[in-house]
Design a protein around this nucleic acid. Structure first.
Length: 398
RNA sequence: GGGGAGGUGCCAGAGUGGCCAAAUGGGGCGGGCUGUAAACCCGUUGGCAAUUGCCUACGAUGGUUCGAAUCCAUCCCUCCCCA
């Protein structure tokens, strides 16, 4: 096992808080291998780079010889985590939950070491709890303390409803730690309250309290909001390499090094060097970003694909060309109305949208801007249809 | 249990019988400038058909009216005050 100081330094990297740090050191000294809990809500079936911040940290734990429990909150999902919410979540159906859990698991293993990961489901103990057990649990906490949470108090003050069951969520999550006898629980900074509650509840149940580690919340492509699927500002770990590369290129400059630190696997030293060059203007922002895009694509899609996307990007965007490989759409007429083609090929969702785009000069046929809404295109062999800057389609005569 | 306020487009929020597919802002999309960055500027943002047309839409269902997001009834949901 790696020396303790080295371990702690690796664990500590990029974390927001470790509470309490001394206890983490003590636990490692005493037990050697710790049980690290990470609870996931199977609400979003797609893992994105925002989630990867935590998963990468878990991976570090695994590499250091610790055990990771990926706890699927299949039972808590029926309530929905109120953390940071301004509205009550709508509950998921049992079917959705199991499907999402499956996807989550598969995707998480793009980052985690499957052989060192224990998967568990909290329905295993929560579903069986009797009402008196629930009472025992709920009596450990007060309404006033629940309302200390910003999200709850905000909702309360703004006259937005808070379901009683939402108060139960943090307690359920805390109880998970009891059931698992977790040594460490990790989560985003927005989870701090829930994680801390785990410490209290474990103590109430006669266990030693878990150490909690919070990780920063990654901003999405807009650079403002946190990365989330519902906001559409995310990069999914299973997205096509071209998408991942392109999306990285569209992040605001201010985020470049935050992304390097939180979602790439480059060493701290390498990143520091890059950042130094960047600040001294020896490294152009675009080049820094390309390096980042290359790194991320390499991690999820491999070296070869990363290099390929790197070249491809230059070709299309810097030289305004057409990507070498694009999906195809077949037509079996010689002549077709642009609007019709745009719609039938699925590039746009309605005729009105197609017309709008044409009027705004956003549609190109073989590189030429389509000027008239009424244009009839003659399809000879293979043509390129482009919408906006990023959407391409190869139109082939059947 | 009693009293009051309210539910509008992706979000926020106007509108309180026809001029409303619905102001304004945000977001999104397209264009320009660029480095697929930021900032800025312009345009656009229900669908179908096309130059004055039709359909769907203002919590749900019925009703009044030539005509309703706007009035009435019932229902569902949310919030506030009192108990």
């Amino acid at each position: 096992m790696m020396h303790i100081d080295k371990q702690i330094s690796l664990i500590k990297q990029n974390t927001q808080e470790i509470i309490p740090e001394e206890e983490l050191i003590r636990k490692i000294k005493r037990k050697g291998s710790l049980l690290v809990k990470f609870g996931v809500d199977p609400t979003t079936p797609d893992i994105h780079l925002g989630h990867s911040v935590i998963l990468l940290k878990l991976r570090t734990f695994q590499d250091l010889g610790h055990k990771v429990v990926l706890l699927i909150g299949d039972f808590t999902a029926r309530v929905g985590d109120p953390s940071g919410r301004i509205k009550t979540r709508k509950p998921l159906s049992v079917k959705e939950i199991s499907l999402n859990a499956k996807t989550y698991r598969e995707q998480a293993f793009k980052i985690l070491d499957a052989t060192k990961t224990i998967i568990d489901y909290n329905s295993r103990w929560l579903a069986k709890m009797s009402f008196s057990q629930v009472l025992k649990l709920t009596s450990r906490y007060t309404v006033a303390r629940m309302l200390e949470r910003d999200d709850f108090s905000l909702r309360y003050r703004n006259n937005i409803s808070i379901g009683l069951h939402e108060f139960l969520y943090p307690l359920m999550q805390a109880y998970d730690s009891v059931a698992l006898k977790a040594d460490v629980e990790i989560g985003g900074t927005d989870q701090k309250f829930n994680l801390l509650l785990g410490r209290d509840i474990q103590r109430d149940y006669g266990q030693s309290s878990q150490v909690i580690i919070t990780m920063p919340i990654l901003e999405g492509l807009d650079g403002k909001e946190k990365m989330s699927k519902s906001l559409g500002n995310y990069i999914g770990v299973t997205e096509a390499s071209s998408e991942v590369y392109g999306k990285i290129m569209s992040i605001p400059d201010e985020l470049i090094f935050r992304y390097f630190r939180l979602v790439s696997v480059l060493s701290r030293e390498e990143i520091d060097t890059l950042e130094k060059d960047f600040k001294e203007k020896k490294l152009h922002p675009k080049e820094a970003k390309k390096k980042l895009a290359l790194e991320i694509v390499r991690f999820y899609h491999g070296e070869k694909e990363a290099n390929y996307q790197d070249e491809r990007f230059e070709k299309i965007f810097s030289q305004k060309g057409v990507p070498p490989e694009i999906s195809s759409h077949f037509v079996n007429t010689d002549k077709i109305w642009v609007v019709e083609l745009l719609r039938s090929s699925g590039l746009v969702s309605s005729g009105s949208e197609a017309k709008r785009l044409i009027q705004q000069g956003g549609v190109r046929w073989d590189g030429e801007k389509v000027k008239e809404v009424n244009s009839i295109l003659s399809v000879k062999r293979t043509h390129t249809l482009q919408v906006g800057k990023r959407k391409f389609l190869e139109i082939i005569k059947k």
